[in-house]
Amino acid sequence: MTAAEDPFIPLPYCVGRVRRETGDTASLELLPLAGPRPSFKAGQFNMLTAFGVGEVAISMSGDPAETEGFVHTVRNVGAVSGALARLETGAALGLRGPFGTAWPTEEAIGADVLIVAGGLGLAPLRPAIYEVLARRERYGRVVLLYGTRSPRDILYRAEMGRWRRRLDVDIEITVDHADPAWHGNVGVVPRLIPRMSFDPQNTFAMVCGPEVMMRFTASALHEAGVSFERIWISMERNMKCAIGLCGHCQFGPDFICKDGPVMRYDRIASLLAVREI
């Protein structure tokens, strides 16, 4: 029995470059030890195993067009993610994937693209940003709104700076708590939406962040005239298997691992309104 035949068996990978993004967050390049890296779509995730500690679902944060390894941005929030975030170049780990649904970067061709990220939610959106910017001429206006707790928590700082200098992307960053050096926006990210320029009748919105942030963002987008069918969010639930067999990630009739994580808002809006569903 090989790993290719059994989706429960992780493949061996090793850590390539490591970039410490913030105090508790690192981006790891993961290189396959055997065979080529499988292709993936923006929005999909892998199951990463720290041997002897456990396994956790983490979205890809790298460019799907680059073929060498996977990039995952990991925040230390528990035993497994902590063990992963502390890995150094050369360390071995296990990987299963890719799993799940993708951002609608193909469907959005010809339309305005509004990307709204909260906190670590920027990581699963970054592959979509790469795809849109790589074929920038195929889209209308491109807007990126990003909210974090504080200026210290801003991810991909150098890259954000490069994107901000582009004249064909509108980027706004807002923080919940400013420090004395911060001269930018303060407040929650949905408040930025009415200020931005896009055609609500012809916009695809891709939203990722805490569930409450995604609900308020969807409401603000809806008020601005974007229909729920054009809003996509990436859901998070406990996952043990990633292949629809462990039952943990159920969200109504859907399994977030295979029917998500990227889901069209109109299909789940009524369930999102139910507490503890």
Partner: peptide, 25 residues
């Protein structure tokens, strides 16, 4: 009912294993 959780266990001899166990919603 088919739900399961997993537990990773490591031993001092350098082996690790993954166990699947019944879980409950």
């Amino acid at each position: 009912c088919f739900c399961t959780t997993i537990a990773d266990v490591s031993a001092l001899d350098g082996t690790a294993e993954r166990v699947r166990k019944w879980d409950s919603c």
